[in-house]
Amino acid sequence: MTAYSGIWPVAPTPFHDDGSVDHDGMTRVLDCMIDQGVDGICVLANFSEQFLISDEERERLTRLSVEHIAGRVPVIVTISHFATQIAVERARFAKSLGADVVMMMPPYHGALLKGTAEQTFAQFQAVGEVGIPIMIQDAPLSGVDLPVPLLVRMAREIEMVKLFKIECPQTAAKLRALIAEGGDAIEGPFDGEEAITLLADLEAGATGSMTSALIPDQIKPVLTHFAAGDLAQAEAAYARVLPAINHENRQCGFRAAKAAMVEGGVITSDFCRHPIPPLHPDTRAALLRLIRPLDPVVLRWGR
C-alpha cells in the first residue's frame, strides 16, 4: 500500500431542516467516517454539496473539519474555483489549517467558460506554489477535457501535483494510460463515482478510491483484498456491495449518504438545499433495503 491508497470518502455536509449548516452534525459525520475505518476524508467536494455552500460557510466548515479530525486521518480539502486567485487563496487557507491535500477540478464556470489546456496548467501551477499536495479531479461535471498527456505534464512539471481522481467514462482505460505514461510521477491514482467501476480501476492500477460516505467500511475490503493479491476475495467483496453502489450512483447521488446517516442516528436531517429535490420515499426505502443486509457502521453508529 502506498502513502496515497485505500478508501478516502467524501464527507456530506449536514443541514438542519431550515437549511442552515448543522455544525454539530458535521463533527458526528466525521467521527462516524473515521469509525468506518476510512484511510482519509475529503471535505467540500461535489458530494458535500459545495456548489450550494457560501464562502463564509466553506471557511467555517474547512476549519471545523481539519481541527476536529485533528490528524486522525489525512484530510483533503476541495478548493475548485474558476478564478485562479481564489483557488490559490483557498489552498493557502487549507494549508494554514493543516490540511494534507487539496483537490481541484480544472477552471470552468457553466457550459461555456472553460479553461484551455494552458490556462488549466497555469492554475494548477499557481496552486502548486502554495506547497501543498494536489489531487486533480477529472470529472465530467467540469466539461473540461483533461487528456492524459496534459495530466502527465502537470505531474512531471508541477511538484505538488501528486494525486489523480479519475471518474470520466472508461476510467480504467484512462488510469492505465496515465500510469503507463506518467510512471513514478503518478503517486496517487484514484477512482471515484461511488466506486461503481472500482474493480476494473484497481486492475488498471488505481491505488485508492474516493467514494461517498455511505458504506466505506463495506467497500474497503475490496481494496484490502486486492492489495493483498487475492483477486477472488476482492471480486466476492465487490459483488456483495455492488447492488447498493449501483443504486446510490444511478438513483440517489449525494443524497444517499445523508439518508443513511439519518437512519443510523448520525445526523438529524437529510435536508438538501434547493434546487436539489429530496429523495423519493421509494428510492430511499430501496437504498436502505439494499444496505441493511451489509450491516454497515452507518446504520448503527448513532443508535
Rank of each mutant, 00 (worst) to 15 (best):
C32V: 01
A172W: 09
A244Y: 05
M160W: 06
L202V: 03
A236D: 11
G19E: 11
E203N: 09
V88L: 10
D217G: 05
N46T: 08
I219Q: 14
A3P: 09
H280A: 15
V262L: 04
H81W: 02
L113Y: 07
P133Q: 10
Q123R: 01
P281L: 06
G208A: 06
P107Y: 00
A227P: 05
M154G: 12
V77G: 12
S142T: 08
I134F: 05
P147M: 01
A206L: 05
G131W: 12
P189M: 12
M210Y: 11
D201W: 05
K220E: 04
Q137P: 11
S20Q: 09
A213C: 13
I245S: 12
C32D: 11
C252E: 15
I186F: 12
F226D: 08
G131T: 09
V127C: 14
G183P: 15
G37N: 13
V10C: 13
C32Y: 08
E187S: 05
P278C: 02
G208H: 02
L178P: 15
F190P: 14
S212K: 08
A204G: 12
H225Y: 14
H23P: 00
G253Q: 03
G71A: 08
G183I: 07
D270W: 00
I79E: 09
A228Y: 07
P243M: 11
Q50H: 14
V88E: 12
K114F: 03
H247R: 06
F226H: 15
A213Q: 07
F164I: 11
D39V: 02
P106W: 04
T171H: 13
F190K: 10
D17P: 03
I215F: 03
P133T: 00
H109V: 00
K162L: 10
M154L: 13
D217S: 08
R240M: 10
L288K: 02
L113D: 13
L97E: 04
T224C: 09
G205R: 12
R176N: 14
A260P: 08
G40H: 10
V73R: 04
L30M: 06
H247L: 04
V29Y: 08
I267Q: 10
G253C: 07
S96W: 02
T268W: 01
F254V: 03
P169E: 13
E181M: 12
R303V: 03
V241T: 05
T197V: 02
D17Y: 04
L214I: 06
E118F: 01
I134K: 05
H274P: 13
A99Y: 02
Q36I: 01
V297N: 06
L287Y: 05
L199H: 15
P189N: 14
E193V: 02
E167D: 10
G229V: 01
T2K: 04
G110T: 03
E49C: 13
A228C: 09
I291D: 02
G110P: 07
G188E: 10
L214S: 14
K114M: 09
D18K: 00
T171Y: 08
L163P: 13
P275Q: 07
E235Q: 12
T2F: 00
L223N: 14
P140F: 03
D39E: 13
G19I: 02
V297T: 09
L112K: 02
A173H: 14
T116N: 03
P296E: 07
W8G: 07
A206F: 04
